[in-house]
Design a protein around this nucleic acid. Structure first.
Length: 484
DNA sequence: TAATGCAGCGCC
DNA sequence: AAAGGGCGCTGCATTA
């Protein structure tokens, strides 16, 4: 990576200083809660282990591995389950690790329907919570704060990284784990936690690269929704139906389309990889198409889609998806997605990759020349990822300067690629939200003329005395910020 | 005993 | 034809 413009150099210099100040500020930790929770989780793990060791499977385990038997070893567990006890194990390369061993992930162990394995998995999860997360915080706390390290020079795409502890990967999607872990992170006395993120940052930046009018329309026009339209295609439901049953769709088909098709496709995934995870949703017996008694699977069956299909990597003339399979259907959707709906995006991908192959580098919109040996998907994603982060970095730098100039005590304390977390004195909340919002939605597009789509942000804020668990969305209503 | 590799999994 | 982009951390297994 080489910065090719003065602005690019400046961004890194200013960014280093901004992140250094963020490190110095640190994130306040509720130490009483941390200690209490560490003890609770520790004893929970001990209880789980006692129960596991009382199971007859543990006797088999000891018989097989003797003194070396270790409850934490997933290699030993797979050996016991699939070689000694001969539990069925799926055929095929995708079910093996890179070194040809049995996989020991959540899915494969979870497929063995025994009380022992269920318990083992719950135990494993608690061990991760303790070993990686709670201990990770405790190890780094100084005077009640963690001062994570942020890097601008380590990531291939010019994103940032974070370590000691890595504040960028704390539980969020698992509600149970999220509530336990994020409760550790609190605002400083007299302050509240504010989190501001750029809505679909990478999609916006992607549109700046490819200038696909359809993608731009999806971004600009709030009545349109590419995830909803793609869900309609994938699950053969009319768009009007999805609009009518918006809340249902949001939890089900639209969510699957977004997270199991649209985003993976943007990152370069393909139909035979998307289809199995989509199908998992389809097979959920608890999800019924509104107004009918049909599961999504039954609904698709009525449309002539009877099964998933083999989902093998396409080779010339081989592994052709079979007609009437979901895999076949997903391929059709993929084709229309890239050849019809986003055909300008597709043309850009081909041109961009071709140019890279010819030159041996690509230039990003924020002024960095990326020279090196990259695969196709890396070339197509690198600039988007880096520049989306640079939008945030620029915003942090600018916001910090504004806070300084106005003698505000609000401080950025963390950054997660497209969001910044601030420690804000209660009385500064309105001013800080207004300033940060303006920086990200007005000043940023003004400063970078390549930014040809509007920027939008989402603000979340925790009540005074609350923690990172308690952040809830706030919006601006006629000049004043308040709960949505 | 220390260093390294691998697999798994948390986040965007 | 393609073959999900980017990280950091942990525990276990293997190698030096």
């Amino acid at each position: 990576m080489i910065p090719t413009t003065a602005d690019a150099y400046q961004l890194l210099h200013d960014g280093s200083l901004a992140l250094a100040r963020m490190e110095e500020n640190g994130f306040c930790i509720d130490m009483d809660y941390l200690q209490r929770t560490t003890q609770e989780v520790t004893s929970r793990i001990k209880e789980f282990e006692r129960e596991l060791q009382a199971d007859k499977l543990w006797r088999e385990w000891r018989k097989r591995f003797g003194e070396k038997a270790s409850l934490g070893s997933d290699t030993q567990l797979t050996e016991l389950l699939f070689n000694v006890l001969k539990h069925p194990y799926p055929e095929g390369e995708e079910w093996r690790t890179n070194t040809g061993r049995y996989r020991a992930d959540e899915e494969t162990i979870g497929a063995v329907d025994l009380p022992f394995t269920k318990l083992w998995q719950r135990c494993k999860k608690q061990k991760r919570l303790l070993g990686t997360y709670l201990n990770g915080i405790a190890r780094e706390v100084v005077n009640g704060r963690v001062h994570a390290s942020y890097n601008l020079h380590t990531v291939e795409t010019m994103r940032s990284s974070c370590s000691d502890p890595n504040v960028q990967n704390q539980y969020k999607r698992d509600p149970e784990m999220m509530k336990i872990l994020r409760r550790c992170y609190v605002a400083s006395p007299g302050c509240v936690l504010v989190e501001i993120d750029i809505s679909s940052a990478e999609v916006r930046v992607a549109a700046c690269y490819n200038r696909d009018p359809v993608l731009i329309k999806y971004i600009k026009d709030p009545t349109t929704d590419m995830h909803r339209d793609t869900a309609a295609d994938l699950f053969l439901l009319p768009v009007e139906f999805l609009i009518e049953h918006k809340d249902w769709a949001k939890r089900t088909v639209r969510d699957w389309a977004k997270n199991r098709f649209v985003f993976p496709q943007f990152y370069g995934s393909v139909y035979f990889q998307c289809a199995p995870s989509l199908w998992e949703g389809v097979c959920n017996p608890a999800v019924k198409v509104p107004g009918t008694d049909l599961t999504v699977k039954q609904h698709l069956r009525a449309k002539g889609i009877r099964k998933l299909g083999a989902c093998k990597p396409a080779k010339q003339g081989e592994n052709e998806p079979e007609e009437g399979t979901f895999e076949h259907h997903v391929r059709e959707v993929e084709r229309s997605f890239w050849n019809q709906r986003f055909k300008v995006y597709t043309e850009w991908k081909n041109r961009w990759h071709e140019a890279y192959l010819k030159k041996g580098y690509y230039d990003t919109l924020t002024g960095f020349r990326m020279a090196g040996h990259y695969k196709r998907n890396e070339v197509l994603n690198g600039g988007i990822q880096g520049d989306a982060f640079h939008c945030l970095l620029w915003s942090i730098i600018k916001s910090q300067r504004l806070f300084d100039r106005r003698k505000l005590k609000a401080k950025p304390i963390a950054e997660i690629h497209d969001s910044m977390i601030l420690d804000v004195p209660v009385e500064e909340v309105q001013e800080v939200l207004t300033l940060a919002h303006k920086v990200m939605t007005v000043d940023l597009p003004k400063a970078w003329d390549w930014l040809i789509v509007p920027m939008e942000v989402e603000c979340e804020i925790a009540p005074e005395g609350g923690s990172w668990v308690d952040v809830a969305q706030w919006v601006n209503k006629s000049g004043t910020w308040g709960p949505k």
